[in-house]
Nucleic acid binder design. Structure first.
Lengths: 204, 204
DNA sequence: ATAATTTTTGACCATTTAGTCAAAATATAA
DNA sequence: TTATATTTTGACTAAATGGTCAAAAATTAT
């Protein structure tokens, strides 16, 4: 039986999670200090620990929240209409999501780089299921002759790779192009170009 | 005037750099401890500090080494023959490189996630030059009608994104596919599929 | 062999960090 | 208003961490 959370509880927990997401995104679990998070959440460290008993608990919460948001986005994606429409729509959604959840995306990258010690079991279940369903869909398109006979998993990886690249490497992209992710025009152009290349790459 | 380095110096410095690359790749600068590196390099911490005065010095050395290797790989890539040949050859080289230098690649990712505080000036010079040269080459292909009129920078980003994805996310890939980067067949297949999709995506 | 030099390390220090705790401040209920 | 429960924090602790140092061990030169 979970204890009912007061208004303050809900607000402050969220404030902490938001702050923690930003700091963990930059420095990973080991590289992040509770002081950094506390400062970013505008509260004292003991107060932070009043809401989350340990650094690990907080980190796990951040990870789960992030993964759930991501899976939510993926599940929202419905196979509707042609391969062209579906893939185009998926890239679009993933691009928007990566921009709006860039910090979560980076927490995720950090976790993967560390060998995904807190995530392996989650990856192995929900995500695996999602991927195998997608593979079936893509195989269907290949059979019906809608797209080229590529190995589906690599199409999926390619889409993930590119969309995440724009979220995770924004520093590099900014240095090289002078453009920010917040630059609507640049981001739209990126999305358009990538979508065009991927669609041409697989459609028959 | 640099002091001439003894045989022991050269060997041990390299041993430390190799160990440090692995640990920094996993945990980033802040998340890595000198003890971890010392243990991985099979020596005591004071001994490690005898070769590199501070953690930062060691980290900078690792970063520079990595970046130079990467730039070396990029520069090795010559524009020769058709767009198809050149792009195909580039993807191939980048794939091989990403696999053989996966740890360096991840150190790089960590640095970028932290906002590239030690790297910004380097990125802004060598890499920027390289990119602008490549953009010219690609624009040439567009003018001559060899490839579709895409914005060159996004083609470059796409190639980087995908090749690095296989190096950086190997944990995720292993969980989802059961295949390792070391699995020659799997890697070859990945390379073949990605190359095919990208080439089809841009060639006229 | 022995003197000079380089390499290695145990013991140590100052600082940082995750986490505790009792008490103060604040909000809520009576 | 007063009693009760919740929230907040200053002061603290134990462990970890980057770095020092003097002396020991090993290597090199004479």
């Amino acid at each position: 039986m979970e204890k009912q959370k007061s208004r303050t509880q809900v607000i402050n927990r969220q404030k902490i999670i938001d702050a923690a997401t930003r700091v963990f995104a930059k420095y990973g679990f080991n590289g992040t200090t509770l002081d950094q998070i506390a400062i970013m959440a505008s509260m004292s460290k003991p107060n932070l620990l009043y809401y989350f008993k340990t650094k690990r608990t907080l980190y796990r919460t951040v990870l789960e929240d992030t993964l759930n948001q991501w899976l939510g986005c993926l599940k929202e994606w419905q196979v509707e209409g042609s391969a062209r429409q579906t893939i185009s729509n998926y890239i679009d959604k993933k691009f928007e999501f990566s921009r709006d959840h860039a910090f979560g995306s980076r927490v995720f990258v950090n976790e993967i780089l560390e060998g995904a010690p807190n995530l392996k079991y989650l990856l192995g279940e929900d995500l695996k299921l999602f991927v195998s369903q997608n593979i079936l869909t893509i195989k269907g398109w290949i059979k019906s002759g809608e797209i080229e006979p590529i190995e589906p998993i690599h199409l999926i990886f390619m889409i993930w790779a590119v969309t995440q690249h724009y979220a995770d490497f924004s520093t590099q992209i900014e240095t090289l192009t002078g453009k920010t992710l917040a630059d609507k025009d640049f981001y739209q152009e990126a999305k358009k170009n990538i979508t065009q290349m991927i669609l041409r790459g697989v459609l028959k």
